[in-house]
Design a protein around this nucleic acid. Structure first.
Lengths: 341, 341
DNA sequence: GTGAAAGCGCTAACAA
DNA sequence: TTGTTAGCGCTTTCAC
């Protein structure tokens, strides 16, 4: 049998409320009984049940975390940092991979509500904002990170996607590239990236042909496929802006396969600055997100809202940073990345 | 206010036990009342509290997962698969990153016990087996994956580390390499890998000088540092066996920095077959672990033990597979990987 | 400084 | 087929 507060009380020859008081450091108990109780707890290897205490109205000390896919190193890093910070704040986290799939989002949300989580961190796109609204109605605070969910009022921590993308595009432009394709993911954060790309191009009087905008999912495979499509287009391209590192890696693999030299014949730029960007050859120029800082901020914001529900919502916009490495180079006259077939 | 079983009962004009019965599909209730109750639950947006039900002795449907570090793609993949399988089995998982740090192991274990997890999956080395024994005493089943913990009797799922390592070493030997260094991590699984390496070498009459065995932690940085040390040794080397991909990547980065050509002047072989191995140039020869299969098996074994505690412990040993890629080549006469300084 | 007792939301006998 | 009730382990108020 697991020891309970009763076993401890009995063994220490006090009442359960006394034990409760020493556990929670409430009320006044003499140092003598306090020591006695602590001793007995250690001896019995007693761990107070969060389940029972939660039932009386106290928090479960659990945070739910919805990520698209932890296999994506960007989210692995983010999840790691979120966990670390949560533990520091006395919470633990239940993580669910949604694959950006509406079914799973719904299923996991219900799971988390039943578990009586104290708060939720959403790091994935979310199709069905209504489900989230229901959580808010039940007083479960929500914070969103690296994503944005329209029509609901929550704390938000994101990198300035528009600026990051503008930085990237502008850099390509400064290298005299004009025929630039972009591969994006169909997610809110990526919309801002696409907008910035378009704006930067337009400011330089460049019109982006629709076929040079490819929307797909975040994976190396999809990046590879998208690149292949781009290489075989009539309208040639000298640079590709991939809206995340996974896609960029796929592009570089495709380039290698088709003997398109990066960066000589094709400049590639990514987004996220994951391990992969320093591990690939040539090392990837990319836009860094301050994951750690973002993680600390969402957790803190969430915890703050648990304590002070009335407070107004915060929208943190952190600075992205362009990390210039070896996958980008000035335009070489006559360069075109294409498949000769 | 969150709706409770009472609100539902009242609204549906039945007793709480009737509601309980429709939730748990126990007892006999007329289709008519059943429909009525279901309707009211939906209308009130009611989600039965796992907290309350757990207090009555039912399972919390929570599995604890201890990993060293989710930033390591191998563990990210593993964690992902474990989660998927757990969800399929009706459980959710609370993940903690231990960094192989005894302090954290202890802290998180206590956390998980307080949460009344139904079972624990350990994917990390574990210094203090006694803590685990205490859990077993409290009837919390434990399964271990990709690791081994001496002196405790639990279900275990591992890849055949000895065989995997033997395969790798043997392959290097078949390429006529004799001066091979090994970089290992100080973990149980790595001991088997080291043993196999030594055995294979010895069977070929090769004595491994102690300095060619480096023990360190699993990270790209440590791999890089270890390689640098190896390169500057008197006793030169033509191949390095890194006991995980992270270390191997570090080795390759060091080689590149010192203009040591892989695989011409140095063959490198890794272990785990993570994304990184196909993303690096040249692509890494490595030993693949069947992560998905391993994950499914630990979860199933754990769930089985929750149901039938008496059953004897299982020790699954899955087959590793040598994946030959481009980081290994036949010994080139006169090749030595070293720094000229 | 300490203890008795009500109640948190639910389950599982047992009664009706 | 449905309802009543005694706990599950803990917190908290109120007496003592």
């Amino acid at each position: 049998m697991k020891p309970t507060i009763y076993s401890v009380a009995e063994e220490a020859d006090v009442s359960i409320s006394t034990v409760s008081k020493v556990i929670n450091q409430t009320g006044h108990i003499s140092e003598r009984t306090r020591q006695k109780v602590i001793e007995v707890m250690a001896q019995l290897n007693y761990h107070p049940s969060v389940v029972a205490s939660a039932l009386t109205g106290k928090p479960t000390k659990t945070i739910g975390l919805l990520v698209p896919d932890i296999s994506n190193p960007f989210f692995a890093d983010l999840a790691r940092s979120i966990e670390d910070r949560s533990h520091e704040q006395g919470f633990h986290v239940v993580m669910c991979n949604t694959d950006n799939n509406a079914e799973k989002e719904k299923k996991y949300l219900s799971l988390l509500i039943r578990q009586r989580i104290d708060g939720l961190i959403v790091a994935s796109a979310f199709r069905n904002a209504n489900l989230l609204k229901n959580m808010l109605k039940q007083d479960i605070p929500i914070s969103v990170i690296a994503s944005e969910i329209p029509h609901i009022s929550v704390n938000t921590v994101t990198v300035d996607d528009y600026k990051g993308s503008y930085l990237a595009t502008d850099y390509l432009l400064s290298l005299h590239h004009e025929k630039i394709a972009i591969i994006t993911e169909n997610a809110k954060s990526n919309h801002a990236r696409l907008d910035a790309f378009r704006d930067a191009m337009q400011e330089n009087g460049i019109i982006v042909p629709p076929e040079h905008v490819i929307t797909t999912e975040a994976s190396i495979q999809k990046g590879y496929e998208s690149a292949k499509r781009i290489f075989s287009m009539k309208e040639k391209v000298t640079a590709i802006f991939a809206c995340n590192d996974l896609l960029a890696i796929g592009v570089m693999q495709a380039a290698k396969e088709f003997k398109i030299d990066v960066p000589q014949d094709l400049s590639v730029i990514g987004f996220d600055n994951t391990v992969l960007s320093t591990t690939i050859t040539p090392m990837l120029t990319t836009v860094a997100q301050p994951t750690k800082e973002m993680a600390v901020n969402v957790v803190d914001l969430l915890v703050r809202e648990m304590k002070y529900p009335a407070i107004h919502k915060e929208h943190l916009l952190l600075e992205p940073k362009l990390i210039i490495r070896k996958s980008t180079a000035p335009l070489k006259r006559g360069a075109t990345a294409s498949i000769n077939n």
